[in-house]
Design a binder for these strands. Structure first.
Lengths: 206, 206
DNA sequence: AGATTGGATATACATTATGTATATCTAATT
DNA sequence: AATTAGATATACATAATGTATATCCAATCT
């Protein structure tokens, strides 16, 4: 007797809905909690009105849930605008725009900060986030290449790319924010630092 | 019958020695472990050849142990050279020296990276580390003030201080290191970025 | 020398998390 | 009406932090 499996529109729709509800509850818990330490699947399940086992059914593990939350935030975080920034005629303007987009991304949902905290305790989750960040690095590299053309050594270009990558990272954003700046003020400071990094590119005086 | 308490040189010396041994075992465990997730008091106690309860006797809690390890690393990390850097005649040279000192500090013992990871799960430990970092911020502020004198607005100076503070932080060092740089190469990149931040100070063109 | 004390140990227990296993329930499909 | 997917209920294994209590031993005090 072969198992007669089937796909059910209603079932999978309902499952997708509970999935959404769990993700929503998880990001809310991350947002409202003081620390990632308090983030337990028990709390999330209760907040979502489901059982802890349902969370495991949907996401497999704590890590799976965190990745799903990260992807959900990324989906609604305005990162789709990056394509525009990358193809801007003036690559310097494109970089400014990129900084703006990422400042918006890091500040939009405070759960991203907690997700970065989760990287500390879960190496595989950290790796997953790092892979997603590589997109940013490639974006920076593309713009720097367009800006620098061949008027700078490969090493100088790599320095600029890695420095700008660090400047547009979440830790830098968090550090500048903690010093009492609004999103726009942080954006301005980071943009200026990126300009300086590009200036050093053509004039590596020191 | 009043309790006749006493102080014992031999006893406290032995206690101090076990304390040292536990701290050593803890930093070794942090250094060798892949992630802070694996760092348990059980492991440390075994590595030190004592009982887990002894760790609690000496440090009170996991957090207490982590703070003790951090302070121990700071003591042997070369930060005492900061006083020299601060009082260097040329404040720009002093800042270069400061960057050098911190690159040395962040790279000397890989346990510091794990300790920064621990900040994510223990808010009070994070606060303790942040307080210790404030010394770095004050150092930067002092040097920037000497460099800028009154040729720049307070806001521009604050921007420079906060940016240099972020540039000399552990996350920035780790990011640039992960891109495949030696300690000295990271140092060079960070120094150049700091120079640029100072240049923006007197010429806030963008 | 004998009583006492500080530090380490032994053992036990409470609590909280993650993750797995098994059986059951219910509503959607065949 | 039988079956199936997704959710639940219950139970269990494991590991970690932290607390409580009693004991042991060597260093001190009288």
């Amino acid at each position: 007797m072969p198992p007669r499996s089937y796909v059910s529109p209603a079932r999978s729709a309902a499952a997708a809905e509970t999935r959404e509800r769990v993700i929503e509850a998880a990001s809310r818990t991350l947002r409202e909690g003081e620390s990632i330490a308090r983030f337990s699947l028990d709390t999330v399940a209760k907040a979502a009105g489901v059982t802890r086992l349902t969370v495991y059914n949907q996401f497999g593990s704590r890590r799976g849930l965190l990745e799903a939350v990260f992807d959900e935030i990324a989906r609604h975080g305005g990162l789709h605008q990056l394509a525009d920034a990358m193809t801007t005629a003036d690559p310097r303007a494109g970089l400014d725009r990129m900084v703006e987009i990422f400042c918006g991304f890091w500040s939009r949902d405070s759960a991203v900060g907690r997700l970065h905290d989760a990287m500390a305790t879960d190496p595989e989750f950290a790796e997953a986030v790092r892979e997603r960040n590589e997109r940013r690095r490639r974006g920076v590299a593309g713009l720097v290449d367009r800006i620098a053309a061949r008027q700078a050594s490969p090493q100088a270009r790599k320095d600029a790319v890695d420095l700008i990558f660090a400047l547009t990272s979440y830790p830098t954003f968090a550090s500048l924010s903690a010093a009492g700046r609004s999103r726009d003020e942080v954006c301005r400071v980071v943009q200026a630092a990126c300009h300086a990094a590009l200036a050093n590119l053509s004039d590596p005086s020191s």
